[in-house]
Write a protein that binds this DNA or RNA. Structure first.
Lengths: 144, 144
DNA sequence: TATTGTTATACTCTATAACTATA
DNA sequence: TATAGTTATAGAGTATAACAATA
C-alpha cells in the first residue's frame, strides 16, 4: 500500500481536496454571515448545541487558546444565543450553554449548509457509500 | 440521481467532509507557521508562485476586499518574499511577484503539505482513482 | 467617469503573559 | 501548588469608506 507520495494521481487527489476545502470553508463563512455570525462564533454555537461545555473544552475543540474563547462566548452571550452557567461540581468552571434562541439558530445554520449536500446529489447511493468508506479510511475510522 | 439530502448516508459523508476540512485547514496553518507565515500569507505566496498577479486579482482569488491585500503583500514584501512591479500596460496596476527567496519558500511549503498525502498512502492506486473521480464530480469537473 | 491601489477606521480572531478564584 | 477563567496587550485578517493616480 504505502508507496506513492508524489505520483500524479496522488497530487491530483490532493489538489481536489484543496478545492473541496476552499469551497466548504467559503460557504461555511457565508452561511454564518447570513445569521450575522463569524465563522468562529458559528463553530462554537454548533459545538454547544450538541452539549454544554466548559470554556476550556471549547478552546481545546477549536484548537485555540482559552483566552480567545472568553471573547467569542461574550459576543454570543451579548446576542442572547449562549449563556454561562456555574458547574455544581467545580466552582472554578463555567459551562457555556446555548439558549433556546441559540439552539434555533444552530439548527438553521445546520440546514443552510447545503454546500456539502448539494454536490453530493449528483452521486448515486452506491457512490456515496464508496466515498464514505474512502473518506473514513483517510480520516482514520475514528471520525466523530 | 438528485434525491437524498438528509438521509443518514449523505449526512455521514457531509460529516466526514467536515472532518477532512478541519484537519486540512489545521495542518495548512501549521505548515505555514513553520515558515513564520500566516495562512493568508502562505496562500498569497502560493498563488504568486504560479504567476505574478495584480493586487486586484489576488483579492478576487482570496475572496476578500482589495484593501486587505495591501497589508498581506506589505508583510510578504517586508520579508523579501514578494516584490511589487509596475505593469507596463496599465500604470494604475501593480503586479505582485515572488522573489527567488519567495519561490523557494513556496516550494518548501508545498512539500510540507504531507497532511493530504499521508492519509492517502493507505489507499491503493485503484482506490485513489475512484476517490479522484468522485471528488471531481462533486467539485464539478472544472477543478483547477 | 470608472478603475487600481492605497489609506483610515473599526471589529474579530489570535497568542502571550499576568491576574483571580477556586481546588 | 495547580487549574479554570479572565484581563491586558499586540499583531493579523476582515469589511467599509474615502482618497490619489491613471484610464
Amino acid at each position: 500500500m504505502a508507496t506513492a507520495r508524489r505520483d500524479p494521481l496522488t497530487l491530483e487527489v490532493v489538489e481536489l481536496i484543496g478545492t473541496v476545502v476552499a469551497r466548504y470553508y467559503e460557504e461555511y463563512e457565508q452561511a454564518a454571515a447570513q445569521h450575522a455570525l463569524t465563522g468562529a462564533q458559528a463553530r462554537v454555537l454548533r459545538l454547544l448545541s450538541l452539549e454544554p461545555l466548559p470554556m476550556r473544552r471549547i478552546a481545546r475543540n477549536l484548537k485555540c487558546e482559552p483566552s480567545n474563547v472568553t471573547g467569542i462566548v461574550d459576543r454570543l452571550e451579548a446576542r442572547g444565543l449562549v449563556e454561562r452557567r456555574p458547574d455544581p461540581a467545580d466552582r472554578r468552571v463555567k459551562l457555556a450553554a446555548p439558549t433556546e434562541k441559540g439552539l434555533a439558530t444552530a439548527e438553521q445554520l445546520r440546514d443552510s449548509l447545503d454546500f456539502a449536500r448539494e454536490p453530493l446529489a449528483g452521486l448515486t447511493a452506491a457512490e456515496r457509500e464508496t466515498l464514505r468508506d474512502l473518506l473514513q479510511r483517510m480520516v482514520g475510522e475514528s471520525a466523530a
